[in-house]
Structures are given as C-alpha cells and as structure tokens.
C-alpha cells in the first residue's frame, strides 16, 4: 500500500511539473508580448522594456522557470501582472465558490446518475430502461452552456415573467454568510453541472449493474433464497461501486471544464471566471496558477480514488 501510494504521489508531482513546464514553454514561444499588453497601446518601446524588466520577463526562460519552481515549493505562485496581487491569494479567495459549485454538482450528478442507472438496469428492455437511455443520450448530447442557458431561460426568465421570482439570475453568497441563500443561488448551477455529468454515471451504472447481475455469484445469492431487492442493492451494487468511484476521478478534469462555462453563465466569481478573465488580459502568472491548481485537484482526486479503490476491493486490501 505504501509502495503504491509513493509511486502515485511521485507520478502526480511529475505530472504537475510537466504541466507547468509545458505552460511556460507555450507562453515563451507564443507570439504576443504580455509586456506590451500591460503597458497599453500608447506605450513607447522604453516603457514596454521597463514593464518587461519589472515583471522579470527579461530573464532567460530557463531561469524564470527555475525561479517559478523553487517558488512553487515554498507556496509562492508569483504575482498577477494585472493587479500585482499574489496569485495564490486571489485563487484562495475564489476557491469557496468554485468548490461549492463542484461538490454540489458532483452530488447532483451521482444522485441522479445512480438512481437512473439502477432503475434502468433492474429491468433491461423495460420502459424505465428506455427512458433512462433517453436521459443518458440527451445528457451526453447537450453542451453544458446550452443546458445552463435553457435552465436560466425557463426557471429564471419565464418564472419571473409569470411573477414567481425564486431563482436569482446570477451571483454567489458565501455559505458562512447565509446557507439558505447560498443554496438558492447555487441550485441552478448545480443542476447545470450535474445534469451533463449525470449521464455518464447513469450509463456506467446501468452497463455495470447489468453485467454484474449476470455473474455467477448473483445466481448463488438467488439460490440462497435472498430477496431480489437485497440481491440488487447488496450483492449487485457492491461491485458497481468500484467502477463508479474510478469514473469520478476520470470525470474530475471534465467537471472542471463544466465549471468554467457555468461560472460564466451564472455570474459566479470563481476560479473558472478568473481564468477566462486572465486569459483575456494576458495575465500569465494567474493563468498558470489556475491551471496548476486545477491540475492539482485532478491529481489529488485520482490518488484518493485509487486509495478508495484499494479499500473497496477485498482482493487488493487483503493479500
């Protein structure tokens, strides 16, 4: 177990270093000059050079990368080109909003996906199965932003027109301030993020459960006279857990993408929003910081999932 963990952590760190390296290289070879962007369109060449020196952009790229990596290990991600705020601070400040959105979305996705998947798998070929399949295929076909726009149109605009304003159009209220408002503001974004991801889980649970229910040990459980509900939920679902948990780690990267769009549509000031804004401003340190933070989450999630996987599987746990 320790051997396994140490291997995973090592490869996770390698991944992060590789990503930051690639980002650095990309910015280096990119045609546009951040110093010129920041100095403004009217700036003279001297002014641009001044900006470049102030930002440290005049140093060789290897040296800059080395400084960045050493800083990284001390928790220093550099400063924003745009407002000179430490990158780490601005990321941390926006983390709660993004985390609320991500966790809630995942919960919606799992709840919806597992329910639909199990319902479909219990009677393959039934109308419930066909509805489930329809849901899955719709979910896989709808881009997050379309789902978000339609939700906004129906639940915000049409309801407001009818005089029922329940959902706010945009914004985020911290949980610590007002839990109820927090949930009210996030409900539509959660459904947006969750709906699209739910399709993946519904499909996965259905196909896994159908194949598990054909296993010999399910026949054994039935031959003992165990009731069908218990056969499905206890014996069947036990072995569907592992692939579902694995899927969560694979999904995490995709979920992050969903957040960028959702934050934009619902006006939530999270990390995704910050990333888009920084891209438009050419604020390199912030972009790299956001990228690394997101990658870090993905890496951590995948390590946690591998751990959970080992704990869930008796064949790995008990040697």
């Amino acid at each position: 177990m320790i051997r396994f963990l140490s291997r995973r952590i090592l490869s996770g760190i390698l991944t992060l270093i590789a990503i930051s390296g690639v980002m650095f290289l990309l910015f280096y070879v990119a045609p546009n000059d951040p110093a010129a962007t920041i100095a403004g369109p009217q700036a003279t060449n001297d002014q641009i050079d001044q900006v470049r020196a102030r930002l440290g952009l005049d140093m060789p790229v290897i040296e800059r990368y080395w400084l960045f990596i050493t800083g990284l290990f001390q928790g220093d991600l550099g400063y924003s080109f745009f407002n000179k705020e430490p990158v780490l601070d601005s990321l941390v400040r926006r983390l709660p909003a993004t985390a609320s959105l991500a966790v809630g979305g995942l919960v919606v996705a799992l709840g919806l996906g597992v329910t639909i998947g199990v319902g479909a798998a219990r009677k393959p070929g039934s109308w419930r199965d066909k509805l489930g399949t329809a849901f899955v295929l719709t979910g896989l076909s709808v881009p997050t932003f379309v789902a978000g726009l339609i939700l906004l149109y129906v639940f915000f605009y049409l309801l407001t027109v009818m005089g029922l304003t329940f959902f706010p159009a945009a914004g985020y209220v911290p949980f610590t301030e007002n839990p109820l408002e927090w949930a009210r503001h996030l409900l539509l974004p959660w459904i947006t993020v969750g709906f699209v991801a739910a399709a993946t889980y519904a499909r996965l649970v259905r196909s896994q459960l159908v194949s598990v229910m054909g296993e010999d040990y399910i026949r054994t459980a039935r031959s003992k006279g165990i009731r069908e509900d218990r056969v499905v939920y206890r014996h069947g679902m036990r072995n569907v857990l592992t692939p579902v948990v694995t899927q969560i780690s694979l999904d995490f990267a995709i979920l992050m993408g969903g957040l960028v769009v959702t934050e934009r549509i619902f006006g939530i000031n999270g990390i995704g929003r910050l990333a888009i804004d920084s891209v438009n401003r050419g604020d390199q340190p912030v972009i790299i910081g956001a990228m690394l933070l997101a990658s870090l989450f993905v890496v951590i999630a995948s390590i946690l999932v591998d751990l959970a996987y080992a704990l869930l599987d008796s064949r790995v746990r008990v040697k």
């Binding site: 296993e215 010999d216 040990y217 026949r219 054994t220 459980a221 039935r222 031959s223 003992k224 006279g225 165990i226 009731r227 069908e228 014996h235 036990r238 072995n239 869930l312 599987d313 008796s314 064949r315």
Partner: peptide, 24 residues
Amino acid sequence: LSAVRGPQIGMVFQDPLSSLHPQF
C-alpha cells in the same frame, strides 16, 4: 420460490472461482 431455495433446495455450481461474491 425464494423461500424454498435454501431450506429445501441447495445448489452448487460449476465455477467455484466466480460463484462466491468476491467482496464479502
């Protein structure tokens, strides 16, 4: 039927490797 399976009829199947639930 499920009340009969177990107390009145016991069953043994072909493949012992797959007939027992691996996680219990």
